[in-house]
């Protein structure tokens, strides 16, 4: 997908316009402070990418992602974080409950994932307060993800 984008300047230009329009729409809602503080779409994308690289390297939990379609995971996670932070997106993936069903995620797995997210954000130099606000928006997902 990224390869195709690179070879198709008109499409990239169209996407760029869409992103700008999307950004404007988000600002108009006035509740996208966290999205903006994370750096908008590029900032959220950078967090997700750094996070995924850390997950892939973490022997405690990377077995959970062995069968995962990484591109889809990336895109849906960007969408989810964008929506949760008040950005101009609508999460189109499955529910947290359905996504994690049967994976047997326990507290240790969940904590390890959060730790990777925190390390990813710290590595990107994201301010403590912004990190905390994102964690606060993600924390309610805990109940639907933990299975045992």
């Amino acid at each position: 997908m990224f390869h195709r984008l690179r070879r198709c300047p008109p499409l990239r230009a169209a996407l760029f316009v869409l992103v700008l329009l999307g950004g404007t729409a988000g600002t108009a809602r006035g509740d996208d402070d966290l999205y903006q503080d994370l750096g908008g779409r590029p900032g959220v994308g950078a967090v997700v990418e750094a996070f995924l690289f850390r997950l892939a390297d973490d022997a405690r939990i990377n077995h959970h992602f062995a069968e995962t379609n990484v591109v889809r995971f990336h895109d849906k996670l960007v969408e989810l974080l964008c929506e949760l932070t008040g950005g101009p997106c609508t999460y189109s993936g499955d529910s947290m409950k359905l996504t994690h069903a049967g994976m047997g995620i326990d507290h240790a797995d969940f904590n390890a994932v959060v730790e990777n997210l925190v390390e990813a954000m710290s590595g990107l130099g994201i301010a403590t307060g912004v990190q905390n606000r994102l964690l606060a928006r993600l924390a309610p997902l805990h109940a639907d993800i933990i299975e045992r």
Binding site: T128, G129, V130, N132, R133, L135, A136, A139
Partner: peptide
Amino acid sequence: WLAGPFDRN
């Protein structure tokens, strides 16, 4: 509590 006063935990 995550992100309490001054966005501090």
